[in-house]
């Protein structure tokens, strides 16, 4: 029996831009998902939280310019624990479009820059979460 989709929304590193993650989290809540709001977390905390909360998706919100480094760190930690591919990984924030492909090569299923629509994010998650 499948329950609601569970997602973890986190901001890795030190980056105070809070609005985006709150708006998207609220949108996912309104789409019927259970959103575990991680807030500011280290990459290690993000991976540990995703395990404890048994989420389907990890959402990283990054506005610091360090999106490649943090995304790579999270994917590396998941690989170390043998969890590569367990979670749908989405990255969003102030990310230049030229980096989208780089993030996807690292392991992000999709990337959402400024101007992204919540309904597109919801549709993507619903389509790709393995339930």
């Amino acid at each position: 029996m499948a329950g609601p989709i569970r997602v973890l929304m986190s901001k890795p590193g030190i980056d105070g831009h809070w609005r985006g993650i709150v708006v998207v989290s609220r949108g996912l809540r309104d789409a019927g998902m259970e959103v575990i709001f991680g807030g500011f977390q280290t990459c290690e905390q993000i991976v540990e939280t995703a395990i404890e909360e048994d989420v389907d998706m990890i959402g990283l919100s990054i506005h610091s310019g360090a999106h490649i480094g943090y995304t790579k760190r999270v994917v590396d930690l998941l690989k170390e624990k043998g969890l590569n591919g367990h979670f749908l990984l989405l990255v969003g924030g102030a990310i230049p479009s030229k980096d989208f492909e780089v993030l996807k090569e690292i392991g992000a299923a999709n990337v959402y820059g400024p101007g992204s629509l919540i309904k597109d994010i919801v549709a993507f998650i619903k389509e790709h979460v393995k339930k």
Binding site: P4, S25, R26, L28, R29, D30, A31, G32, M33, E34, V35, I36, F37, G38, G39, F40, Q41, Q45, T49, E53
Partner: peptide, 15 residues
């Protein structure tokens, strides 16, 4: 009660 979704925000106090 409308969407069935939830915003689970207790965790940020327990870092």
């Amino acid at each position: 009660p409308f969407s069935g979704g939830a915003f689970l925000g207790d965790r940020i106090r327990m870092s």
